[in-house]
Design a protein around this nucleic acid. Structure first.
Length: 362
DNA sequence: AAGAATGGCAACCGCTCATGA
DNA sequence: ATCATGAGCGGTTGCCATTCT
């Protein structure tokens, strides 16, 4: 009662729009602009309800629509935003110029959702169907292997998690700022995934400090200088399965675990998953913190972690290992050139809570 | 080659919210 | 305060093209 009556009215066309109808609507809106949709059909000479006209304009006729395939960056942005916003398609679409909520919704339902599921990610929660991280932590706790000096966090936040948190703590405008400089470009992503030569050239790494990071910059720098290799240690220490206190460094434990791993796709075994988890964790941290020199304004690529299988990760790590060398810290404006060290020379600085503290607040 | 199954997508439906009388 | 109306949103449907058997 009192509901939209367009479906009740007689002689109103439904279904696909003909080119003639499109022409009429486009012509009308071009001249008179968007106003009262309920009066549009009559004025434009269309046998449609206003609602139908509005939808056709918004989803198809609007001149500012982008059309075509979604770019990798758009895909990643959708996934990231969906993790935070859920099925709020209109809000998601607001962050993607030229894309409609309907388009994004369809893309999600027909492509992205399936892809995540294929990768063992629950599209509703954006978390693995089986949460290995929690299991590992529990296992470590059971055997008293958790690093005693590292009270919190017990595990590092994934980039997804801390992007989510960052978003929750800031507004959407800020979010774009936060995302800038935390990213890979499509080109660098492909380099990472396909390159046979070292994918990481640490001397080219810039840490882009967005507005969000500015307050932390000094603290961050200090930690960089005080810790012998706090960034690297962070990568390794952030992997919960390495958070134990035997005599090996995180790095060597990590290496040996990966070297023993020879799975090729997916996570069919616990070790597969472990390797993938660690590697992707490492890469996503790297991806989250670094961007290529001169490309500081890229869009976040959180999907990277899911597209890297265990073997790929191993290759990346080895490549990375072989190319790492000592460098210098140079600070200027918004960027820091990070130094890098061979994995073998990593000092065992596992108890540096300050390192975690900095990242925890990112 | 043909029918079935599947995927992608445009459009519809029903609901909520905002606004104004 | 209540009601009518329009706009917007998200879930769902159904068409069509493509792929599979």
């Amino acid at each position: 009662m009192g509901r939209h009556s367009c479906s009740l009215k007689q002689k109103l066309r439904k279904g696909l729009w003909s080119p003639e109808e499109d022409e009429k609507l486009f012509h009308y809106i071009t001249i008179f602009g968007v106003g009262c949709w309920s009066s549009v059909p009559k004025l434009a000479g269309l046998q449609r309800c206003g609602k139908s006209c509005r939808l056709r304009w918004i989803n198809y006729l609007r001149p500012d629509l982008k059309r075509g395939m979604f770019s990798q960056q758009e895909e990643n942005l959708i996934i990231t935003l969906h993790e935070v916003l859920g099925n709020r398609w209109a809000q998601i679409a607001a962050q993607l110029p030229g894309r409609t909520d309907n388009e994004i919704k369809n893309f999600w339902n027909s492509c992205l959702k399936k892809r995540l599921m294929k990768q063992g990610i629950d599209p509703a929660t954006h978390k693995p169907f089986f949460n290995i991280t929690e299991s590992v932590i529990k296992e470590n706790e059971k055997s008293s292997m958790l690093m005693p000096t590292l009270s919190q966090p017990q595990r590092a936040l994934s980039s997804h998690e801390y992007y989510s948190q960052a978003l929750l703590m800031s507004d959407l405008n800020n979010y774009h700022c936060n995302m800038n400089g935390l990213s890979f470009t499509e080109a660098s992503r492909k380099t990472l995934l396909n390159s046979s030569k070292p994918a990481f050239d640490p001397l080219c790494y810039n840490l882009s400090v967005s507005n969000y990071y500015q307050p932390r910059l000094r603290e961050f720098e200090q930690n960089l200088f005080l810790g012998s290799d706090s960034i690297s240690n962070y990568f390794f220490d952030s992997m919960p399965c390495l958070n134990n206190s035997d005599n090996n460094s995180s790095a060597s434990k990590f290496s040996s675990l990966l070297v023993n791993e020879n799975s090729s796709n997916g996570c069919s075994t616990m070790n597969d998953y472990l390797a993938c988890e660690m590697s992707s964790n490492m890469i996503e941290n790297a991806g989250g913190l670094f961007s290529w020199e001169g490309e500081e304004n890229n869009v976040l690529d959180p999907l990277l972690q899911f597209e890297v299988n265990a073997v790929k990760c191993e290759e990346l790590l080895i490549n990375k290992t072989s190319s790492w060398q000592e460098g210098q810290f140079l600070t200027h404006n918004n960027s820091i050139n990070l130094s890098a060290y061979p994995l073998t020379s990593l000092s065992e600085d596992l108890s540096n809570e300050a390192n975690f503290d900095v990242f925890q607040h990112l």
